[in-house]
């Protein structure tokens, strides 16, 4: 089966509230696709629709070309983590995985494998009610991995993780994608997915706002911003302005240069004989790139409130 998630034209309304408004995107194998947007943008609803939990008014959602409800043992095709706290507190983590394994006709040994894989081997036989939020997230990931599925879909897996847990989760997601799986990870905090996501699907108000590669996005957001440290501030400003750059003073001896790439800045300053002690090309964080991308959408929303 092809490891893809194809979402096409999903529409869903709760009464007069539109939850999904033509949601369309595709998740391809071999990379982590970040599914981001503010709370209420339709991320969780989309995931529930993909999993056949919620009905839609229009549109289709396919896993490897097939509707989820047509899958006989779906956990062997898609691993999903929707809500890590969806546990019976009196049931042990191991039993929580065991009943899922039975439902997919998976061996009980697979349960112990995923417990080891997620670092829960020690606590698997304890009541899940006593688990920390981080342990619950790991248990949820263990459940998603149970059927060794080619497609993974995780809703806010970073919630409640400590810094060490966040680092573990990032590495884990990268590994899963490197194994050739299609991995869709939703988040409302872009920074969590730094160095993890290879692709970005940004949603707002039930539809896709942007669907782009992370590398291109960061390159675009970082475009031609250089930080310059120099004692000859005035001379540098004059020379760079002549070369067409926009220069701003950020400190006594620090300038931020926009509109001219770093190598051109070096050439201009050298030709003008202006000394400088440090020059660095600025690289935007994923967070900044995301903010840049969604600024228009946010402004649009603000303007809508006050016509």
């Amino acid at each position: 089966m092809e490891a893809t998630i194809e979402v096409n034209g999903l529409r869903k309304a709760y009464g007069r509230t539109v939850a999904l408004d033509g949601m369309t995107f595709t998740v391809t194998p071999g990379r982590v696709t970040a599914f981001v947007g503010p709370n209420g943008a339709g991320k969780s609803t989309t995931m529930r629709v993909v999993l056949g939990l919620d009905r839609v008014d229009a549109g289709t959602a396919l896993i490897g070309g097939r509707p989820y409800r047509s899958l006989r043992t779906p956990l062997r095709h898609v691993g999903a983590l929707l809500d890590a706290s969806a546990l019976h507190p009196a049931r042990s983590g191991r039993d929580h995985l065991l009943w899922q394994a039975h439902s997919q006709r998976l061996a009980a040994t697979r349960v112990d494998e995923v417990l080891r894989l997620t670092g829960l081997a020690e606590v698997g036989r304890r009541r899940a009610g006593g688990y920390s939020l981080g342990m619950r997230q790991r248990l949820g990931v263990a459940g998603a991995l149970l059927g060794d599925p080619p497609v993974l879909m995780l809703d806010e897996p970073f919630n409640g993780l400590d810094p060490e847990g966040i680092r573990w989760m990032r590495g884990f997601l990268r590994t899963l994608a490197a194994e050739g799986r299609a991995v869709l990870v939703s988040s409302h905090l872009m920074s969590e997915l730094q160095d993890t996501a290879g692709h970005l699907v940004v949603v707002g108000r039930g539809r896709v706002v942007a669907d782009t590669g992370v590398a291109e996005l960061i390159a675009a957001a970082s475009a031609d911003r250089v930080t310059l440290r120099t004692a000859a501030r005035t001379e540098a400003m004059t020379a760079l302005a002549r070369a067409g750059a926009t220069v701003a003073v950020t400190d006594k001896d620090t300038l931020t240069v926009d509109g001219v790439p770093a190598d051109r800045v070096v050439t201009v300053l050298s030709e003008a004989g202006v000394p400088f002690s440090e020059i660095s090309a600025h690289r935007a964080t994923l967070e900044e790139a995301y903010m840049e991308l969604t600024r228009d959408a946010v402004e649009f929303r603000a303007s809508e409130v006050t016509p």
């Binding site: 999993l51 409800r69 779906p74 956990l75 929707l82 899922q100 439902s103």
Partner: peptide, 9 residues
């Protein structure tokens, strides 16, 4: 939801 994800029927 976990139950119905595991068994859509």
């Amino acid at each position: 939801r976990t139950t119905f994800t595991a068994t859509p029927g």
